[in-house]
């Protein structure tokens, strides 16, 4: 049984980083709410979403949205839902068919609600039908087989692969490419990013995926959190440079402080 009520090895650097991070995020949320203008750079993949849905409208073909294989406790899936909401709003506005196959049952329940709500908010509830969001299977490769078959048969004009993807990423993205669809991908899985970068027209890499929801909403509080995150990143870069310099000069207390046992 441990001696103390707190874990000393975790209450050093991790706690400091957590507090600094929360400070910056809350500070910028507060500043944004007070009306401070915050600049967020343009993200090409997000800007291209409307163009992709527009292309599907012109061609009269459907839009396919894949929320990844993660369940709802995966933060990438939560980020994907925010993007799905935007895409569903666009398909409702442009009157294009939307298809959302799901691998995870919890995600399926959430995507159905998200799409339904987006159609309601777009003022086109009559266009929503439950079959547009459907469950396929929990098995990774059975899901890939089903989705690639769907791509080949229906030839969607735009494919969104946003969320947590694993070995199935290339199977789906390459099939989408072969049917001539415009593809926008987004994931934080470092091992799958190269596949998406090669095969898809636009790729949201790591933090861009998590920023997408905030970027699309344009709400000051959301945008402020991205700015806070950027400042924490600048702080971490400073941490790394200081750490390297101290190590070069043989001073090790900083490294010891930053190490989690």
């Amino acid at each position: 049984m441990p001696e103390t009520w707190y874990d000393p090895s975790r209450c050093g650097a991790p706690l400091v980083v957590l507090l600094v991070f929360c400070f910056f995020v809350l500070l910028f949320i507060n500043l944004a709410r007070r009306g401070r203008k915050l600049f967020i750079r343009r993200i090409a993949g997000i800007a291209a979403m409307e163009e992709a849905v527009g292309r599907a409208t012109e061609l009269g073909r459907k839009v396919l949205y894949l929320p990844g294989g993660g369940t709802l406790d995966d933060i990438q899936t939560i980020a994907s839902l925010a993007v799905l909401r935007h895409v569903a709003g666009l398909t409702a506005r442009y009157t294009v068919d939307l298809d959302v196959p799901n691998k995870d049952p919890l995600t399926f329940a959430a995507t159905r609600d998200t799409v339904h709500e987006a159609y309601l908010q777009a003022g086109r509830p009559e266009l929503f039908h439950p079959e547009m969001v459907h469950y396929v299977t929990y098995d990774q490769f059975a899901f890939s087989a089903s989705v690639t078959g769907l791509m080949v048969r229906d030839k969607p004009a735009a494919i969104f692969l946003i969320g947590a993807f694993h070995a199935e990423s290339l199977l789906m993205a390459e099939t989408g490419q072969s049917v001539g669809a415009i593809q926008i991908a987004g994931t934080a899985e470092v091992t799958q990013l190269p596949f998406f970068a090669v095969v898809c027209d636009f790729t949201l890499m790591g933090e861009e995926l998590f920023a997408a929801g905030a970027y699309l909403s344009g709400e000051p509080a959301m945008v402020g959190s991205i700015k806070g995150q950027d400042f924490t990143k600048a702080g971490l870069i400073l941490y790394i440079i200081v750490g390297i310099l101290l190590e070069i000069f043989g001073i090790h207390w900083f490294r010891d402080f930053m190490t989690i046992q």
Binding site: V25, A82, T114, A188, V190, G206
Partner: peptide, 28 residues
Amino acid sequence: IIIGAALGAAALSLRVILGIERSYLGIR
């Protein structure tokens, strides 16, 4: 990429915990 993604994930988690990000509820 990993550091950026981790910070992005943490920022999104904070938005979810504080109730700023609500898209997972189907509500904005």
